[in-house]
Design a protein around this nucleic acid. Sequence first.
DNA 1: CGGAGCGTTCCGCCACGTGGGACGCCCGGT
DNA 2: ACCGGGCGTCCCACGTGGCGGAACGCTCCG
Lengths: 255, 255
Amino acid sequence: MPPGTADESFLHRVVTVLSAFRPEDDGLGAAELARRTGLPKSTVHRMALALAETGVLERRGAEVRLGLKLFEIGQRVPRQRVLRDAALPYMSDLREATRQTVHLAVLEGHEVVYVEILPTPGGPDLPSRIGGRFPAHATGVGKAILAFSPPPAVRSIVDGELSRVSGRSVVAPGLLVRELERIRKEGVAFDREESGPGIVCAASPVLAPDGSALGALSVSGWSGRMRLHHVAPAVHTAALALSRALGDRPSGALR
Amino acid sequence: MPPGTADESFLHRVVTVLSAFRPEDDGLGAAELARRTGLPKSTVHRMALALAETGVLERRGAEVRLGLKLFEIGQRVPRQRVLRDAALPYMSDLREATRQTVHLAVLEGHEVVYVEILPTPGGPDLPSRIGGRFPAHATGVGKAILAFSPPPAVRSIVDGELSRVSGRSVVAPGLLVRELERIRKEGVAFDREESGPGIVCAASPVLAPDGSALGALSVSGWSGRMRLHHVAPAVHTAALALSRALGDRPSGALR
DNA sequence: CGGAGCGTTCCGCCACGTGGGACGCCCGGT
DNA sequence: ACCGGGCGTCCCACGTGGCGGAACGCTCCG
């Protein structure tokens, strides 16, 4: 080990191992985990046994998978729980009124994390998953949140690498900044096939009493079947109503 | 520490600290965490800082709370993800048809863990929460699952302590065994105010191709407003349809 | 029949988790 | 104004337990 290098701590390694599980995975073996994490097989194996002992992982023969205990603890995370519980009825109304798929997301670093998704029977198969991530600058919810976020956080994203998720993603920093200004004025963000081909979306921020964004609501559908100027007022209204409801409650700590 | 006792390992302590957060909590201080876990304050404080470094916990001033990363990982847990994704449309239909609150739960030890809940506007405020636990013998979903579970697992619960959750909970082992036999014959379990006053529920197991229960669906409502013999066929039908859909797919590892 | 990949076990080394104690701070009661 | 209790934070000598290269037995496949 090169001297001066703060080698990864034990806890970092644990998180690395847990994060190595992908959504589509079921059980993984010690060798596969070692390959994904870059850790010695012996180390991963010992750790997997210890984690299984605690219930964080579950043994299935020789393989190991994420345990139900992680799901239980994950549901108690305040950042999603409080917002999700308050938003659910508004999301339900929004789906009813627009007959489209409704999303609720929060910002985490340079990406959004989807907290809840209400799919609609006839709608497209979207790549978004509850608990999944997506680059903030390439989604409606992401831009809606960024438009009402502290300048330093926005700067960090604008000056960072703006990945081209689809052919129409906004990757020019100047263009993105100007779009955020427009969103700040109008209160609604749009995504015209920027996150995926054939998919459009209108999004509006959920605001704390101090004006900063806690998250965002959105409505998504096929570009041919959904008129953005039609659903935009509905999304905006729902987000305003939710913001007001959150402000009234003594919900306290969301940010 | 009594000699011979294998003092709790570091990982056990980490899980203890994470489990110390209750659903209604937001941020907790080092002293409060030390009190709840029984660990030395110094130890908890150091651990909290390390966990915050990994993103598992988030620092909020001097306090610390469960981090969004835990929610993300929790959503990847296969036991809930595969079942929940497959069940959602059937649950939605069931709510539509019965106009009552629909639950999906799995068995974990002596308790059920709620995986998904579709509330209905006019329904009662139930104590159940997604990711929450409840004694299996005192709920409709619990009894539905137990009726189709391996005898050793059932024995362990029947012979264990059958807590009296409400005044009408089944606490007599013999009575419970006989009820499970009836459920096995009819395919539907009932809960007549056994888990809470004024609440009734009909539940039916989601079965793997081998006949063992993966989880259960239920419909709950006010005892005066919902007729059990009316919703029972609907729950049973939905559960059968879901079981068949899971059997057809190469979903693989659910148990 | 041989090699590749797997899960599992071993063991000497030393990083790092340990926890009692101390410190400065902000309270709220007197 | 004073003081005591609770808080977050920090320190440091101690020794536990994580470390990981290596080796073993196994199964599968060409």
